[in-house]
Amino acid sequence: MNRIGLIFSSFLVLIALASSTLFVVDQRQFGVVLALGKFKDVISEPGLNFKLPPPFQNVIYIDKRLLTLDSSDTEPMLTAEKQRVVIDWYVRWRISEPTEYIRNVGLNEGAGTIQLNRVVRNAFQEEVNKRTVKELLSLKREDLMADVKAEVLAKVRGAKPWGVDIVDVRITRVDYVEAITESVYRRMEAERKRVANELRSTGAAEGEKIRADADRQREVAIANAYRDAQKIKGEGDAEAARIYGEAFGKDPQFAQFYRSLEAYKTSFANKSDVMVLDPSSSEFFKVFRGGVAPAANNKK
């Protein structure tokens, strides 16, 4: 029984020892073999590989994919006109030569990130010092990013190459520092309020002008309409008088009789009307007394 346990234990030890000598490199990584803590070899091709068991050899992995470095420094930079601005940027980079990277930078991506952040920051500071804020916000921003990329490439490909490739450098934001931004916003707000007040004043003046012109046109229209109405009324009265004149001129006695009847009708319009006069001597009741007879009776 003890022999079986010993065999089984030995088998497990052999499996553990064999597994410690095998490692798999993924297609997204570089396999770095370290011998007693020192760099020995880089495995670039994916697959199963062999090494000595620990502590003689160990394996670490470095990412070979495209990496992104975002700016984390909020320190302002000075432009050509000594304006303090804050720039947000990012860099797309990858490890292209793992052997050079390990020897000159470090054993992981973090070491490259720290050093690359410093280099990119210094390159941006140098290029921003040559340009004005207007140029940073205009189409010349592309020239700035191209110049920064060129400076960073020159640094990482220098006497001690880093073994990295800089794919792209981009600016995501250019802004004044918070104190200046607040001052600019206050000035913009004051200017907008001034423009708004000016527009309101101009609008009120234009409104008064339009209302006054509308009132004037209304008065002119009413006056013209009244004038035309009076003119038409006068012409109508004249035409009516002419017609009456022509009609009554043919028989004056009938005309007088008709007008007297109209006068009586107007005078006695209400039942409560009372007139105190002498019918025998008043000219008003001359028709009743037979002083004026219709033309038809006269002819008879």
Rank of each mutant, 00 (worst) to 15 (best):
K286G: 15
T79M: 06
Q57D: 01
N104R: 11
L277Q: 02
R92F: 06
I102C: 02
F50K: 14
A190C: 00
G5H: 13
Q125E: 14
S20D: 15
Y258V: 06
G47F: 14
A255M: 02
E206C: 01
A123R: 05
V287N: 08
A238K: 13
I210S: 01
A221I: 08
I114L: 11
K134F: 08
E126D: 07
Y258D: 05
A240R: 07
Q230P: 00
R289H: 05
D215R: 10
F285C: 00
R131V: 12
K299S: 09
F257W: 13
P54Y: 05
V152A: 07
I15A: 10
G234Y: 11
V105N: 08
R141C: 10
P54T: 03
T172P: 00
A111V: 07
F268P: 03
N58F: 06
R218A: 00
N104W: 00
V276P: 12
V274C: 10
F248D: 00
R211M: 04
V148E: 02
K209T: 07
R200I: 09
Q217A: 02
K160V: 03
K160F: 12
V195P: 02
V32L: 07
V276I: 15
I171M: 14
R131P: 13
I166Y: 05
S20L: 14
V133E: 08
N129F: 06
G291Q: 01
F56H: 00
I222T: 03
A179Q: 00
D165I: 04
V120G: 10
K300H: 11
V177E: 09
D215P: 00
K40A: 07
G234E: 08
F8E: 14
E178M: 03
A295S: 12
V42K: 14
G207S: 08
R216L: 09
P76G: 01
M77G: 01
A223S: 11
N197A: 14
K134Q: 11
Y264I: 12
D213V: 01
L36Y: 15
E151L: 04
L136T: 02
G290Y: 13
L52R: 06
K82V: 03
N297Q: 11
I114N: 06
